[in-house]
């Protein structure tokens, strides 16, 4: 218990930054992932190709490389400066969006084609067919895989520690600098992650699943 009390500043800042990284990246990943999923079912071949290209390239690149690019490569380009924190958010969002997109696309495939045909038949254009009819139904079946993606994102935030962001994954390094025993510190970090997942994400998932239970 001493480790966490003596170093509460470290734990607080660390998990606060983890929370910020997670929440903002999840938000942008959800939006971007939904857009990319939409592109991949679009009637326009160029849109489909662009969406597929993005997913295949980014999803198959290790997260560390993506973050390294934004933290180390990007500043060398002649572009506006960004903080390590923002670089991490951009990298995590772009990476996670590919998984969100695939989860949503699988959800779109569970919506029968009859639904979009009926929407087109009353004169709804593609965008409205997607946003009014298909996506609301796709989201319902997509809650469990989407939460797996977000739990992975929560854990992936620790990779940002390697790029000078003081988040939960960096706590260990700081503890050892302060001469604290490593194992208890690590166990505390792990425990807090489990509590975050079981205490916040899982109940939220259960709530959404119940609320959006598909009526068939």
């Amino acid at each position: 218990m001493n480790v966490i009390i003596d170093n509460s500043d470290l734990f607080l800042t660390g998990f606060k930054n983890t929370g910020i990284l997670f929440a903002i990246s999840a938000f942008f990943a959800l939006i971007l992932g939904t857009v990319v999923a939409g592109m991949r079912v679009s009637p326009a071949p160029a849109m489909r190709a662009a969406g597929t290209f993005y997913v295949n390239v980014v999803r198959n690149t290790p997260l560390t490389l993506i973050l390294a690019f934004f933290a180390l490569g990007y500043p060398k380009l002649d572009l506006p400066e960004i903080s390590f924190m923002n670089a991490a958010i951009i990298g995590l969002s772009l990476y996670t969006a590919t998984y969100v997109s695939e989860a949503i696309r699988s959800g779109i495939n569970t919506v029968s084609v009859g639904q979009s045909e009926a929407a087109r038949a009353i004169g709804l254009p593609f965008m409205q067919t997607l946003t009014l009819i298909v996506l609301p139904q796709a989201f319902r079946s997509v809650v469990p895989p989407l939460f797996s993606v977000f739990i992975a994102l929560l854990k992936n935030t620790t990779v940002a520690a390697g790029f000078s962001v003081l988040e939960a994954g960096a706590i260990r390094a700081y503890l050892s600098e302060r001469g604290e025993p490593l194992l208890p510190g690590l166990l505390w970090v792990a425990l807090i992650f489990v509590v975050l997942v079981l205490g916040i994400l899982t109940p939220l998932q259960r709530y959404l699943e119940k609320k959006w239970r598909v009526a068939r």
Binding site: S112, Q115, A121, I122, G123, L124, P125, Q137, A215, R216
Partner: peptide, 22 residues
């Protein structure tokens, strides 16, 4: 858009109803 507008003038009823489930 032009195709969507035309479809608005042509009603369609499907074998499997296809009412918007949500």
């Amino acid at each position: 858009k032009a195709l969507a507008a035309l479809r608005a003038d042509v009603g369609m009823v499907f074998q499997s109803f296809n009412l918007f489930a949500h």
